[in-house]
Design a binder for these strands. Structure first.
Lengths: 243, 243
DNA sequence: TCAATAGTGTCTGTGAGACACTATATC
DNA sequence: GATATAGTGTCTCACAGACACTATTGA
């Protein structure tokens, strides 16, 4: 039986941490800040902030996203991924954290906040390989997994692109996030036949070489009824290794 | 600009509310308690409890599940569904609630706790039609949606069944939760060909009439790579934001 | 012309759904 | 025998993947 002091309801501070993903130079990047205050002073961490009096936790995440990237979170899909509540996960005291996933088109360099030494887009593979503050390595890992699944079941891939994008742009998103190679012909057909994913703009975009590609914008559909197949999901399906 | 008293970090109590689903008499049921204390005294509500000093929020949910049903939550899939953090959602003060989904085989009648007038299995369609305490109607709705999706992508359907079950039992789960009719022959083939979902027991179970059915137990696989197709009966949901 | 990228045609294998059929039980 | 439930065979259609082909641009 636990001691009296070890049980009973507890107050806590609640924070929202953000995993903001984008693609730059065909690499999946995550926005990491470098902490400027203890604990973990000088270590990379996910951006985040505490729940305030008159907001929801999603509001906290949107506010933080705006501060870090200038993006209006209300217009982006902000996905709840996980909840982290281990009693000793934060040396400052009892802090429960929700993680939100945001996916953005190629953005300008972020700016460091007041309590932050710097803010940078870090290659995800690199970010997963180095130690992060708190339990942020785990939070990041969970969010990446979540993003990969969202690509199968939703149209979120389009939010990695600019407002007007080509089908090849979209294919790059899938290939980068899943780290696989897809057949351009089959991908083309799949996307154009999928009702509501894409809307034609009637315009094209020139390439330095080759035939200009048709430009699309994101269609109204958000969830797919028939999921986009993801190759090499530990199955005997042959997928060419990438590069 | 907000007033000074309206902003700034805030402490909160955190609770885990449970949506415990089971199937009784081919109907999807949810465990609802009737509150015995204000606020919402006498109203039906989801069971739940507050985060305590030395536990995770999942631990809170498992403790509550054990108290309400006698089930060891650690051995059941307990799925985080949503997070509810509107500032005025609870008249007692700032309370942030996480909802967890639990799916159980046909259980005995639950017993009422100390602050609870009664606890009962309620038909889900009925529970969605009557007012519940707090924002529990929304929490319940979100959890049902989540359960329907989990049936497509995981083997959670088996947790609605007893340890040994027939393929027809499993089909009943899908039909009840999705509210559709499936072809028995095709369902049979689909399940038996799906690697790792089912394990043969070598035994059969007699029916009052007809050929005895082979009994299976749940296999090791938890997530499906190829989702079980859900007839497009009620695919009316677009992604609703959860806080 | 060639090289490069966009996009289409077409074949093949797999799997879902429809539904007829066989198998095994009770009455 | 009839009836009910379990389970299989088989046909068709749709779609994913492989890959050859056409289309449209710049050099």
């Amino acid at each position: 039986m636990p001691q009296e002091s070890d049980s009973g309801p507890v107050q806590a501070r609640i924070s929202a941490d953000l995993v903001i993903l984008t693609i730059r130079e065909s690499r999946l990047k995550v926005l990491l800040i470098v902490r400027g205050t203890p604990p973990f002073d000088g270590m990379p961490a996910l951006p985040g902030g505490f729940l305030e009096r008159n907001e929801t936790l999603r509001g906290t995440a949107e506010r933080e996203l705006l501060e870090e990237t200038g993006l209006q979170g209300g217009r982006l899909p902000l996905e709840l991924v996980g909840l982290y509540s281990e009693p000793d996960r934060d040396p400052r005291g009892r802090i429960v954290t929700a993680s939100y996933l945001a996916v953005a088109a190629n953005l300008d360099e972020p700016v460091a906040g007041s309590e932050t030494k710097s803010a940078n887009w870090i290659d995800v593979k690199m970010a997963l390989g180095e130690p992060l503050a708190f339990d942020h390595s785990r939070i990041l890992r969970d969010a990446i997994d979540h993003a990969r699944t969202l690509l199968e079941r939703t149209t979120i891939a389009a939010t990695f692109c600019d407002e007007h994008f080509t089908i090849r742009d979209l294919q790059d998103v899938y290939e980068t996030v899943w780290d696989v190679a897809l057949d351009p012909g089959n991908f083309q057909r799949k996307m154009t036949r999928m009702e509501g994913f894409l809307e034609e703009t009637g315009t094209t975009r020139k390439s330095p070489y080759g035939r200009p590609a048709a430009l699309y914008r994101r269609g109204p559909v958000r969830t797919l009824q028939t999921s986009i197949f993801r190759p090499s999901a530990s199955l005997d399906r042959q997928s060419r290794p990438r590069d």
